[in-house]
Amino acid sequence: MRVNKPAAARLVIIILTLVFLYLPIGTLIVYSFNESKMVTVWTEASLKWYGALVHDKAIIDAVGISLLIAVLTSCTAVVIGTLAAFVLVRVRSFKGESAFVLFMTAPMVLPEVITGLALLLLFVTLGNVIPFFSDRGVIAIWIAHVTFCSAYTTVVIRSRFRELDISIEEAAMDLGAGPIKVFFAIILPAIMPAEVAAFLLSFTMSMDDLVITSFIAGPDSTTLPMLIFSSVRRGLSPEINALATIIVAIVSVCTFFAWLSMTRKQKRMAADRAKAARAMLIEEKAVIEHRRLYKSKA
């Protein structure tokens, strides 16, 4: 029997990739259940670091702030992203369009230190005029996060927008639906998967951002990544392992559900296609019938 070379190569690549990606995370999880304070020496299984986590007020506070900012950010970024995507796909060629596209792509690639510094200096400058901006708390972080998340939400929603058939919107309008009705009844359901994806993406990015937040945040607003970072800089600690394990667990569950819905959708589409195919068979019979009828008359 001949070995299927590409298939074998694919298997090796996939295994190596997964080992590379998951070995560090796996170790992290294993040692979170370690009794010892030493992160690298296994003594016995224990949940004590999880207990310590629950009682660490600094961590609980940081989680609260991070969640708040992430929710606010994702909602705003999705709205801005939807508007921007709509503008980019439907309203073609307006003045300053290329500048607009540049604004919308650049935050994705720009080094975070630059974005962070730029936004901080903006807040300081604006703070001289409007005192509101000097308070570098949740709102300032929210604005900063929205700015870089919008770039991503725009990309995600735009790619879905482009798949939409504009004539469906025109059809709705033709049947008497005004622009607002068209948006909520026709466009929104169609781009909903992308809206959800964009929301989740900006949520994770907002939860995860360290550098930009560090520039912006004042002393009172410490987010979760900032807390982890400062604690990691001080040295390894099993408490962080426990925290990391929780984060990984949450992300895995979400990923699993995302995968599940994706698979379900594909199955549904396959079923729809099968139904359509059956309908087509019936139609073909009708065509033959029609031919016979009209040919015999001719």
């Binding site: 998951y22 560090p24 995370i25 939860m207 360290l210 990544p225 990691v232 390894l236 984060i247 990923t255």
Partner: peptide
């Protein structure tokens, strides 16, 4: 689909956590 999700998933967890993970195994 599964592989795609698996490759992407680590990037949805915290960056600092991922670096921390490497610190523990490269010690």
């Amino acid at each position: 689909n599964v592989l795609f999700m698996l490759v992407i998933m680590p990037s949805w967890t915290s960056l600092v956590v991922r670096i921390y993970a490497w610190m523990t195994i490269m010690k």
